[in-house]
Structure formats: C-alpha cells, structure tokens
Design a protein around this nucleic acid. Structure first.
Lengths: 213, 213
DNA sequence: ATCAAGTCTGAAACTTGTTCTAGATTAGCG
DNA sequence: CGCTAATCTAGAACAAGTTTCAGACTTGAT
C-alpha cells in the first residue's frame, strides 16, 4: 500500500465534515440511486422514489444533491472508485501501453455491460450535465484519466501523452453513448477503442521527451 | 444495389409527402426552435413557447416532433445541412488529409462558437437522445461522416479509414461537450482535434509523410 | 442542561415536458 | 358540391424535477 497516498482529490474541498448520521444518509441515497438506476436507467431514478427508498425527505435529498444530474454523477464517482480498485487488482497483461489501455477499457466496458441500465443512467447524466455540475464531472474525468495512466504504467506523462489520453477519454465516452443508445455494437466499440489507443504508440518512440513543468 | 445512391438519405423513408402548408408549419417550428435555442440553449427551448412562437397548437407540435429531443435533433440536421453546404464552398487548404480534416472541424467549431447557446441545445439533445431517436441521430452521424470524408477527399474509404473517422467523430462530439460545459478551452479543443486527426495519417502509409522538424 | 443555529421532515406548490379530449378546419374524392 | 377521414386547435390534465415552508429534531457551544 502506498504509504502516503496523495491525491486527496480536492472534491471534498469546501465540504464541511459530515456527521456519522449524515454520512450514512449520503450512502443510503447513493445506494438507492444505484439500485433504481440498475432497474430502469435514467428515467427510473425518480427523485421522490430515491427519497422514499433511502428514508429521507425530498428536501433533504435536494440538500445533499442539488439535482438529479448531480446525484447521478455522484453515483458515477462512487462506482468509478470501486472500479478503479477492481482494475488495479488485475493489471492488464498487454505488451505495449496501447494494448494495456485498450484491454483495461474493454474490461471496464464489460463491467458496464453487466448493468446496462446503471451505465445508461450514469453516462446520460454525465453528458447532460451543464456548467453547474462541472466540478463533479471534472472529478469523474480525473478519475478516468488516472485509470488510463495506470494502465499505461506512467507516473509522469508528457503533454503529448496527456493529449492522447484526453482523446481516448472522448472516444470512450462517446462510444459508450452510441452503444447505450443501440447505434453501435459491442464489436464496434471494441474496434473504436483499439483504433484510438494506437495514438499512444505515436507518443512513445519519440526520442525527444519534453520536460514537464 | 443502389446505382448511385447519392443523397435521399432515407430519412423521409416512411414519411408521406407533406402539403405546402404542412411544410411551412414544419419550417416555422424549426425556425422557432433554432431561435429560442440561440437565446438560451437547451432550457430555453420550451415546447409551449415553440408552439406559440410558430403559431401552431401544442398537440400539432408533438405530431410533427414527438419530443423535445426529436425537435432539437431535427434542428441539428437542418443546421448541419446548411453547414455542409457552406464548408463545401471553401474547401480546406491543408496538404495532408489530417490537416484538412482538422481545419474543417475547427472551422465548423468556430461557426458553433458564434451561436454557443444553439450549439448547446443541439449537442445536449444529441447526446441525451435515447433509443427512440436513434434513426434521427444516426442521420446526423452520417451527415457528419460525409463532411469529414469530404475534407479527406475520399470517395471510397477503407475500413481502417472509416474507423479513424468514427473515432474522430467521437472526439468531436465529446470535445464539443466539454467546451460547452466550460470544462475545456477552445485551445484545448483544437489540440484534441489535431491529436485525433493524426490517426488519419496512420491509414495512409503511402501518402507522403510530412517531415516536420 | 440549555439555547441558538443548523438540519430534517412532510406536504404542498410550481414548472415544464407530455398526453388527452372535444370540437373546428382542411384535404381528397366521387 | 357534399362527404369522410385526417389534421389542427385550445385547453385541461398528468408526470416528474424542483422549490418552498412551517414545524420537529440535532448538534455544538456555553
């Protein structure tokens, strides 16, 4: 285990510490949200039902999560953390960085496949989020970046590599959407992921590595 | 086999021909939609307002466009067609295919910048669309593909090239979203587009590689 | 223990997308 | 022209996200 884990994601930056009961409420809400989402996707996550199902008043739900989109993005943060942990346990076996990234993403993809409704709810919320949710969405993006960099085995990426990772994330999100809305097959998603991952190779053999500031 | 399957995109496949007045209504609706969207984005396009503003009853609006998302995706089709025409008039000047595609997309991007609220409404609708809107979304996707292939100067792309184009589209949509929600700067979008466009070079080994040094 | 400030609850109200209904209008046709 | 089916209109009604509010409950500091 890393001795002094860094990161301390800054997500809880301006958040006053929650009491135990508040933490419990928050967990109940997220759990109810994920459960309803697993049933019927975005539409099935109805705020009244989430409130009832987590034994919290509607007003309280809105105090914890100021909108349905906030709630679902928080749910995604939660799931992503979990997934990052899982993925870490079995690091990908590919030879090249691009292979490992593609493998990792496809593994994540298969996990989402197991709960397609949940995936639907989270991804739709993510892309539908407006500016008021930017900090939370950014947090999800950072987490995704961390997963990809992990798979690449990098601690100190060049800016070219960061660009490639950004594009991979774009492709990942958008491919997910096309799959969720039934416009692309799983095979197609796989091809797209593999295609975009080739970008990584373009950043490797290059002799000249710029020094990161 | 289609002889020269040109346009006639099949969008109007099962659509009985509209009378003149109906065509006029449809235009009024799309116009009102674009106008409201230009003002305040997705949220400002309120179905009651669209109806009133296009002098049509609410029920009629819903007969023409079965949901707000359908309406906005149709609005996007409309705008895309227009943009394709515009872009065609001034073909991009780059040497390589990837340069031309990047240039074309950035040009399109600058056009969207001029109406950021409209862009917001259209893109949010596009990514929020569920299965019931798939045909229309697909149509938008085909139109986008056509624009990119046009910029590449290709008439019959290889499957590797089609994959690259798909990934470019993914990146384009997702980058647009991050920009619209204020999480990426225009400069960042430019970098992402240029990065992904390099994929095109990978599909043309015999084309002259530029030696930039 | 007590009090003020902050939090939670339950319920109603408000907003906007969507559906439904009954009657008026229009289009196509003999 | 007159008939019939389809379409259009105005408006009410419904659904789900969001806001509001009065009163009950916690919490933290004295």
């Amino acid at each position: 285990m890393p001795v002094e884990a860094k990161v301390d994601i800054g997500a809880r930056s301006a958040t006053p510490p929650l009491t135990e009961r508040q933490e419990a409420r928050r967990r109940r809400i997220l759990h109810a949200s994920a459960q309803l989402a697993s049933r019927g996707g975005f539409d099935a996550v109805q705020m009244r039902e989430v409130a009832e199902s987590s034994q919290v008043a509607l007003g309280t739900l809105y105090r914890y999560f100021p909108s349905k989109v906030h709630l679902l993005v928080a749910t995604m943060q939660d799931q992503l953390e979990h997934m990052h942990g899982t993925l870490r346990k079995k690091p990908p076996a590919g030879e090249t960085a691009s292979e490992r990234v593609a493998e990792t993403l496809m593994r994540a993809f298969r996990a989402l496949q197991r709960e397609p409704h949940l995936a639907d709810a989270m991804v739709r919320a993510l892309t539908f989020a407006d500016r008021s949710v930017s900090p939370e969405v950014d947090q999800v993006s950072r987490q995704t970046t961390a997963i990809i960099l992990d798979a690449m085995g990098l601690t100190d990426p060049t800016s070219a590599q960061l660009s490639a990772v950004r594009v991979i994330e774009h492709t990942w999100h958008s491919a997910l959407i096309t799959w969720l809305s039934g416009r692309a097959s799983i095979a197609q998603v796989k091809i797209d992921i593999e295609t975009v991952c080739r970008l990584i190779d373009l950043t490797e053999p290059d002799a000249k590595q710029e020094r990161k500031k």
